[in-house]
């Protein structure tokens, strides 16, 4: 159509001054706390071992937190729990979403309602219920470290439901599930094989996005972890924030960096995925 070629009309080359004003205000609001945190994290003085002089600004705060075994330990624990959460979430939700689409579409409202419930149940309420069930006997899982981590993973998987299920379901909607399944079965593949070799690879982009979002959420999560008393990153950072001056700033910056990295991964996956599917999809 001719209309498709049409350029937006009367658009000033540099945009309206109002738009710039609002944009700059917004950007300042977003950027200033980051700058302030970085600045704060650099206020810690570095003592020169030779001259004994104190040097500011320095990276001393970063050195301190990265040498702090509890900080690094918390980070690693959070990372490990995030990975387990992602694995469980995927193993649970991909077959479920697949099964709902293919075999029991009538169950869709039920499954969707459950996966959206975490939007209505705040983490503090969820952990309240979990503690009341899993702290006292007969299900006193929270008495052991392993049991606590298991319940924590369970809670995080629930938190990931809304994002992960939507990502998986949207991913499934873009591929012709029935045909792929029938084709695989006609070649002699059973259900597990169909899921593993055909469905998972075709959902790669969607699954990775969901996975990284879950990673970002779990890495910084505080409420549930702190009430369960696990030694993850969130509660330890909070503790640092109450007791130390500059280390928490460094810790926050590290935390932001992790979230950023995870989110950038999502964006890059999104781009790569578009590039991969577009030529095939274009007529």
């Amino acid at each position: 159509m001719t209309a498709a070629v049409t350029a937006p009309r009367r658009r000033r080359r540099w945009g309206s001054p109002w738009a710039w004003l609002i944009f700059l205000l917004g950007v300042s609001y977003f950027v200033i706390p980051l700058i302030a945190t970085i600045e704060f994290s650099l206020r810690a003085a570095y003592k020169d071992p030779v001259t004994g002089e104190f040097i500011r600004p320095s990276l001393a705060a970063y050195e301190l937190v990265l040498k702090d075994p509890k900080f690094v330990g918390g980070l690693l624990t959070s990372f490990r729990i995030a990975l387990i959460t992602i694995a469980v979430s995927l193993l649970l939700l991909v077959p479920t979403a697949y099964w709902v689409r293919l075999k029991v579409p009538r169950a869709r409202p039920v499954v969707e309602l459950i996966t959206l419930m975490p939007f209505v149940i705040p983490p503090v309420v969820l952990v309240f219920g979990l503690i009341r069930i899993y702290a006292p006997p007969p299900l006193a899982f929270l008495n052991s470290t392993f049991g606590t981590e298991a319940v924590l993973v369970g809670a995080y998987v629930v938190l990931s439901f809304p994002y992960m299920y939507r990502a998986v379901d949207t991913g499934l909607s873009t591929i012709d599930l029935r045909t792929l399944t029938e084709a695989a079965q006609s070649l002699g593949a059973g259900w597990p094989r169909v899921l593993w070799s055909v469905i998972f690879p075709n959902l790669r982009g969607a699954l990775l996005s969901g996975a990284f979002l879950t990673l970002a959420i779990v890495m910084g999560e505080y409420t549930i972890a702190s009430f369960m008393g696990t030694k993850t990153f969130g509660p330890y950072l909070s503790l640092l924030g109450q007791n130390k001056a500059y280390e928490p700033a460094a810790g926050s910056i590290i935390s932001f960096a992790i979230t950023w990295a995870a989110m950038f991964a999502i964006v890059i996956i999104g781009r790569a995925n578009r590039g991969r599917t577009q030529p095939a999809g274009a007529p």
């Binding site: 706390p33 980051l34 302030a36 945190t37 979002l213 970002a216 959420i217 910084g220 999560e221 505080y222 969130g234 950072l237 909070s238 924030g241 928490p248 700033a249 810790g251 926050s252 935390s255 932001f256 979230t259 989110m263």
Partner: peptide
């Protein structure tokens, strides 16, 4: 997704 401890600290 920035809510939580680091945000409050920042």
């Amino acid at each position: 997704n920035f809510a939580g401890v680091p945000l409050a600290l920042a």
